[in-house]
């Protein structure tokens, strides 16, 4: 190195100067970083963390099982949920009818299996609608700020001021038609506010990061930056909230159906079956147990998953 005439350590002709020998020792900390592999992302680390939690596998099993039942109920029972004979009313469990019969003489096991679809469909539809609506409103308010933020935030406040179940009861009792779609639409139209608030906060904290400034400096349009850089980096809290919310929407749907203003009676659903079981509660309390247990198990699966995902995505909780 000292041979280079431009190097400041190279003495000019006629100048005497001590030059320390170049330090050939490697910088331990810098060289220890393995650059051959890409740095593991938040998601990779979260996944590695989640895999080790038994609670994750329990909740994942529940969710997969319930989804399978909802999609292919025929695989799990050969009985029809609407094949009811009054002669079997409140009958005891028999071979091929392991849970027995309800007041109408329908097979309880078959009704519990077929009831899964209504709950899962309403839960998934509502969550999808809430996430789309909430992230759109929240992202626009948080990213563009100014006028957009003022108007959209006040709009969110207005919808937030009406409790979800109260609003759902009022609207559902007014609607002329009640089906899976209307229940999901009503729940979504008042459920999106929390996601909007979460997204807004998350986007506002992400948009001031250096990588966003860098993307702008490289000439990316504002819309592209929002979609490609800001939103993916604000997704973690939204995903956690949405997972837990899916469970609570299923509960809300069952509550509405139980009150007689949710899903129509001809649709096999847990909420409707619980409402029917209420009449036979003193004679055969276990009739209530099966649909209620299936409902609680499904909701538990989603809430537990949300819990595990939250822990895995929170670096503060992970270190301990």
């Amino acid at each position: 190195m000292p041979e280079n005439p431009m190097h400041p350590a190279t003495p000019r002709p006629g100048q005497e100067r001590y030059t320390a020998p170049a330090d050939q020792a490697k910088l331990g900390a810098v060289d220890a970083v393995d650059t051959t592999e890409a740095p593991s992302s938040l998601w990779n680390e979260a996944w590695r963390d989640m895999r080790r939690r038994p609670l994750f596998w329990v909740s994942a099993t529940i969710i997969v099982l319930v989804s399978l039942v909802a999609m292919f109920p025929g695989l799990f029972t050969s009985q029809g949920p609407r094949v009811c004979q009054l002669a079997n009313s409140l009958g005891d469990p028999a071979p091929g009818h392991i849970f027995g019969f309800d007041r109408q003489g329908c097979d309880i096991y078959a009704r519990t299996i077929y009831g899964a679809r209504a709950s899962v469909v309403v839960g998934v539809l509502t969550t999808l609608a809430v996430v789309i609506l909430g992230t759109t409103v929240g992202a626009i308010a948080g990213y563009f700020g100014g006028w957009f933020d003022t108007v959209l935030s006040r709009l969110t406040d207005i919808f937030f001021a009406v409790p979800l179940v109260l609003a759902a009861i009022v609207i559902m009792s007014v609607l002329p038609e009640r089906n899976t779609w209307t229940v999901a639409a009503v729940l979504a139209s008042f459920g999106w506010t929390s996601i909007a608030r979460i997204t807004r906060g998350s986007v506002m904290s992400v948009k001031n990061n250096e990588f966003v400034t860098a993307a702008r400096a490289l000439g990316m349009s504002r819309g592209a930056i929002l979609l490609r850089h800001v939103l993916p980096n604000s997704a973690a809290p939204i995903i956690v909230y949405a997972t837990v919310a899916l469970g609570t929407y299923i509960v809300a749907e069952a509550t509405l159906t139980f009150l007689g203003i949710g899903l129509p009676p001809w649709l096999v659903s847990w909420g409707g079956d619980i409402s029917m079981a209420q009449q036979s509660l003193r004679v055969r309390p276990e009739i209530l147990f099966y649909p209620a247990g299936a409902l609680a198990l499904t909701v538990l699966g989603f809430i537990m998953l949300g819990d595990v995902v939250r822990d895995a995505l929170d670096p503060k909780a992970r270190k301990r």
Binding site: V251, A254, T255, I274, A292, A296, L297, V299, L300, I303
Partner: peptide, 15 residues
Amino acid sequence: SLLVIAVPTFVLGFV
């Protein structure tokens, strides 16, 4: 606590 959150209020009321 997770179990309590998962059981709907009306089911808990009946039980």
